[in-house]
């Protein structure tokens, strides 16, 4: 890929104010005082850490109840999937699909794609660079929408407070789900997309590298 890499000139872009500067000897932006790195420090390791945590918590997020409805009809525990199944059976296929995609598929896809990106960087793949970049952009964009479920539960819990008639309280699944979403967002943030292009340059003969 053509173009000059900042790292090759011994400079790095400040992620806060965008100023080019040298992180050596002090990794601090001269203009705004933010920390300045050629690449985000430890980013692969951190991404992995967040990813693994997210993967682990994905299971309880889907298995544990996200809402506990206590009404005069009895107590009902609902998981995300039971909600999807209920909506599907009651005929609301569209809503059922939306919930399924937003709450089950998207977080999983996010985790998978991030995993793919990290592995590709680690293995220093050179192909499909543009697609991987695009994937990262989509990842960043849809990340916040995954919290939809948590918002819905929060609103339900706040709204349905008819005491003895019906109350909804959040189940522990919501915590796990929120943790998954936050962890995947953190993982996406920890990931340094610049690493996608690094292997391209490395294939060329190294010059001016300290």
């Amino acid at each position: 890929m053509s173009g000059l890499q900042a790292i090759r000139t011994g400079t790095a872009t400040c992620l806060t104010c965008g100023m080019l500067g040298s992180p050596i000897p002090k990794p601090v932006c001269k203009r705004c005082g933010s920390s300045l790195h050629f690449r985000k420090p430890n980013n692969i390791q951190r991404t992995w850490a967040y990813l693994i945590a997210a993967y682990v918590l994905y299971l309880p997020a889907n298995l544990l109840p996200i809402t506990i409805t206590r009404s005069i009809f009895g107590t009902q525990h609902d998981t995300i999937m039971s909600g999807v199944v209920y909506l599907w059976h009651s005929g609301s296929w569209a809503i059922s699909l939306i919930v399924f995609i937003a709450s089950v598929v998207v977080p999983l896809l996010k985790l998978f794609s991030l995993t793919l990106l990290v592995i590709s960087v680690q293995r220093r793949w050179c192909g499909e660079v543009m697609r991987r970049a695009k994937l990262y952009r989509i990842l960043e964009a849809i990340g916040r929408w995954s919290m939809l479920d948590v918002y819905v539960v929060t609103i339900l819990v706040a709204l349905v407070r008819a005491e003895s008639l019906a109350t909804i309280s959040p189940g522990s699944g919501v915590l796990a789900f929120a943790a998954v979403v936050i962890l995947s967002m953190l993982a996406a943030m920890a990931f340094d997309p610049r690493l996608i292009w690094d292997p391209l340059d490395e294939t060329q003969p190294k010059e001016n590298v300290k």
């Binding site: 050596i24 300045l36 420090p41 992995w48 850490a49 918590l57 943790a179 590298v209």
Partner: peptide, 26 residues
Amino acid sequence: NFPTGNSRSRKELLIWIVPALAVLIA
């Protein structure tokens, strides 16, 4: 290959507490 200015330290290992906690919870 790309010096970051910070050497790998114990502090950076702390990040692995996050998945460890998740695993513990699970």
